[in-house]
């Protein structure tokens, strides 16, 4: 296996906490999943990114992600609102959503599950969870590296 830079399926990570974003990216690295992970720090930015608006109009640089990794509690538009908006959008409804949250509150989990999120993972994200996420995603072209 080689460490390629071919344009492949990439993740969008929506996380307002830079430290947590780093931990999540590291968990992917440790699982040897080298797909690109773009990070935005708010629900509003995520929405612009997904709708290819604002700074994200370059569709070559910012194609639609094949999976959204989402923090729930964020200032401004939070994870729940973003899920609702994506559900209401024909072009975005089918993108799988994985929630990565500190909240182990059953109400959050139930709500998010009802809204159709694929996974609910309580932080911190572990290598094992990353592998589970990736295995459960449809049509993934995973970039494996440095095995």
């Amino acid at each position: 296996m080689s460490n390629t830079s071919v344009q492949t399926s990439h993740f969008l990570l929506v996380e307002d906490d830079a430290d947590d974003a780093l931990l999540t990216k590291r968990a992917f690295e440790k699982a040897h999943i080298w797909n690109r992970i773009d990070v935005v720090s708010s629900g509003t930015d995520a929405w612009d990114y997904l709708k290819q608006k604002g700074p994200y109009t370059d569709t070559n640089r910012y194609p639609k992600p094949f999976c959204v990794l989402l923090d729930l509690n964020m200032p401004g538009m939070d994870g729940r609102e973003l899920i609702a908006q994506m559900n209401a959008d024909d072009g975005l409804r089918d993108i799988p959503i994985v929630v990565i949250s500190t909240s182990d509150y059953e109400k959050d989990m139930d709500l998010v599950r009802k809204m159709g999120a694929k996974h609910y993972i309580i932080k911190p994200l572990k290598t094992q969870s990353v592998l589970q996420i990736v295995a459960a995603l449809p049509n993934v072209s995973v970039v494996l590296g440095r095995v």
């Binding site: 931990l23 590291r26 509690n73 500190t102 909240s103 182990d104 509150y105 932080k123 911190p124």
Partner: peptide
């Protein structure tokens, strides 16, 4: 309180653990 505690009290602790690991 339960909600705040579940998020705001646990998050920094979890972060300490994770970064000690790092």
């Amino acid at each position: 309180y339960a909600y705040v505690a579940s998020h705001d009290l646990q998050a920094p602790l979890q972060k300490i653990e994770s970064y000690v690991d790092l």
